[in-house]
Design a protein around this nucleic acid. Structure first.
Lengths: 201, 201
DNA sequence: GTCTATACTACGATAGAC
DNA sequence: GTCTATCGTAGTATAGAC
């Protein structure tokens, strides 16, 4: 048996332990503020070992970030492009799935957004949200439903209502339990509000 | 003439130059990623001089951050507590004033929020938004208007619609000119949408 | 694969001349 | 007040034993 390779019910591989630790520390403190020593300690291993598995802090970070971006987009993409779903269903699905994702990863949006802000060039190629949105069935459906509304404005509002509470969590919701309860309620609220918005003008 | 002290129509003081530079670099890259050398260079002065005026990177940062927090709150506070204003007027004023502020300082929210995330303890005392909101006339007016709506949920939506586009600017709006135009339109949109939301259920 | 020890670099901060 | 030069340290990364 040459290498470690599992992660079924068994103990996590060293590599997995490092990734998990890196995930935690990076998302909490951001790239620049995390020290590889912190990650090593969190993973319960040695600093040298971290450089053995991943060649550098940078490489490790990019791995984590790619994973996070994947998480974020894999929720949106299938929904907005599913032409089988009505506009109302899309809105409901978006609010519900996104909030579920974010309840499990509250620091995700702030982490991703602030790293992009800190290093925009590094993401220029990897992210073209406008392109993705441009041709989505979601845009068409909004135009169809209410031609007076600029679809982008509506989508930004929908995303804002959904994501913002998590971005501002630390400031607005000191109590974790209350926060979770509010976010659960919020799924239906956002859907209802978004639909009301579509009827304006 | 003992010290430099002006900043009328004249050239900025060295101290002012440093603050301005620090402002720019800190908000762009975040505390951990900025090097005092960058600030010095941006200010067109020497590294040693920076430590002469402000004792340390930390001190300089706290100064900037206090200023930024001040900026953010000084817009909200007078509006939500002005019992002279009707609910509708409050909503309009909030959207309009906040967007105007943020057009002038697009990186402000992401900067503040991510620094708080990176170092929550440092802000525990300085920020109690819940307390400020709790007793505001805004909350009362929302309850009065529509008892079925949880005021906090509504306010978070209002703030989300307003602030989120700036938080996600880098990702969603590569074109600066289009962005500004959208944000100008958005003032009225948010007000209209928020009012529609208040009629639901 | 995992460790200890260490090389190398970058950064914040200070000393001291002007 | 402003500079040049430098110290001390913390952080990434590597060499080499086990």
């Amino acid at each position: 048996m040459a290498k470690q390779k599992r992660s079924k019910a068994e103990d996590p591989t060293t590599e997995e332990k490092i990734i998990e630790a890196a995930c935690k520390v990076f998302t909490q403190k951001g790239y620049a503020a995390t020290r590889t020593r912190d990650i090593a300690e969190e993973a319960g291993i040695n600093l040298a070992l971290l450089n053995y598995y991943f060649r550098s802090k940078e490489k490790l970070f990019q791995m984590i970030m790619a994973e996070k971006l994947q998480q974020l987009f894999s929720v949106i993409f299938p929904i907005i492009n599913n032409s089988q779903l009505t506009l109302d269903k899309k809105i409901e699905a978006l609010a519900e799935n996104y909030i579920d994702l974010l309840i499990g990863n509250p620091e995700l949006p702030l982490f991703v957004l602030s790293e992009i802000q800190a290093n925009p060039e590094g993401f220029k190629d990897k992210i073209q949200v406008q392109k993705i949105l441009k041709d989505s069935s979601l845009i068409l459906q909004i135009r169809e439903r209410n031609p007076d509304i600029e679809p982008v404005q509506f989508i930004v509002s929908l995303l804002g209502m959904t994501i913002f509470p998590f971005v501002a969590k630390q400031v607005l919701f000191p109590n974790e339990k209350i926060f979770r309860a509010l976010m659960e309620d919020r799924k239906k609220l956002i859907a209802a509000w978004a639909k009301a918005m579509l009827k304006t003008k």
